[in-house]
Write a protein that binds this DNA or RNA. Structure first.
Lengths: 228, 228
DNA sequence: GTCTATAACCGGATAGAC
DNA sequence: GTCTATCCGGTTATAGAC
């Protein structure tokens, strides 16, 4: 998070926080862009705000990334990839039992977004308004490591389900529906956070408690639903 | 939907589709605004597009609604209220058994948004970026009929849960978590539609089949998860 | 590479005629 | 009530100095 609540005030000359290198300029701009785009949405993001947060001028942002649209694309791909890795990049996740797999997915996801709660909403909104970005993302991902792991995981889940349905220890359900259910139950509270908090009258702390409770109980809820 | 794919071309004078009254102008503008705001998001919406779709000039849009922000607020409240009514406005819904209540909620919701799939995403994104709008909405709703029905429903669900937990026919679960689960499972597929479709490689028809399957199986999934 | 200055472009808002 | 014309502000994008 790097306390970058830098006020609009321009800084004397190059380098914020004199002497702290803090990565090369391009990276600093990209980091700032990620924060700004995620919190404002692509449409609401302003290059000036990105520049301020990176400690450079707005012109320099375009020097490195040529156009707002190009920067938006870059940020989207970056954020989406980071998220994917956080979810399926963990080593142990894809040869475990169905139960522990579900538990791992749920807890990994909640932990990943808990302190960056705008990310799911950003990704979903962006996907809604720029579906081609999703297609490019998926297209590029094909064959890469995370994508192969996801495919293996899906295959594993499918086998597990078939086995259990066959021996009568699970209700019939397609892997697709199960995975969408898992995603829905974990992701939705973040996307709906502002509405839920208002309707329930929760402050940040109580909502956080609510998420803790969920993190604890969700795996059991799901696994329970699978019994025949 | 009213085939309003009107091209930017200006029409001769007043009234599109000569002779068709089609409701008064203000209403036509509001309808157009609802479509445009929902599909583009508030930030991405352009008054010119609203005007084109309503068959009037951009100036007239502002004549009726004074500012884009005012129009945005009006549209948000409108859409949110419509959605609420579709969900909890049905007469039978709040004295039924827990099972049939869940089934009614799920199917009513899926049927309501099925042919306007951008609505959930619009509402959630808007709530994220303008939380005060949600607060005003909730504030205004207090005491109204739909809000009273919602309160009754919540009370009913709470009683039902307590009864069942007490006699051992249900796992302990707070009504809050249950309701969030129901919402998550029904709403999420719509919000995530572009991503899901791309990742699964579904065209519109197959996605529609996927939703049918969900509509059929989701109630059982949820009810099943409640068993002790 | 980085800045300052400014052009070019929208989009929302206003004025005023009909 | 409705239109045309125009203003004004903000935002992206470019030119050019250092």
């Amino acid at each position: 998070m790097t306390d970058e609540s830098t006020p609009p005030a321009r800084r004397s000359t190059r380098g914020r926080r004199a002497g702290v290198p803090d990565g090369d300029t391009e990276q600093r701009i990209l980091d700032a862009a990620r924060r700004v785009f995620v919190r404002r949405g692509t449409g609401g993001a302003r290059l000036q705000e990105v520049a301020d947060e990176a400690g450079v001028t707005q012109a320099l942002v375009l020097y490195y990334f040529t156009s707002k649209d190009a920067l938006a694309e870059r940020v989207f791909l970056d954020v989406a990839r980071t998220m994917m890795n956080a979810l399926i990049g963990r080593p142990t996740s894809f040869d475990a039992s169905l139960e522990s797999l579900i538990e791992q997915l749920v807890t990994a996801y909640i932990d990943a977004v808990r302190h960056a709660p705008f990310i799911p909403g950003y990704l979903l909104a962006e996907a809604q308004q720029q579906p081609e970005r999703v297609e490019r993302l998926v297209g590029q991902a094909i064959g890469t490591m995370p994508s192969q792991m996801a495919a293996m995981m899906l295959a594993h889940v499918t086998r597990e389900i078939e086995r259990r349905v066959a021996d009568g220890t699970m209700r019939p359900m397609t892997p697709r529906q199960l995975l969408v259910n898992v995603m829905a139950l974990t992701i939705f509270p973040f996307v709906a956070q502002p509405i839920l908090r208002t309707v329930m009258g929760f402050d940040e702390q109580r909502f956080s408690d609510f998420l803790d409770e969920r993190r604890r109980e969700l795996p059991a809820f799901i696994i329970n639903a699978l019994r025949p």
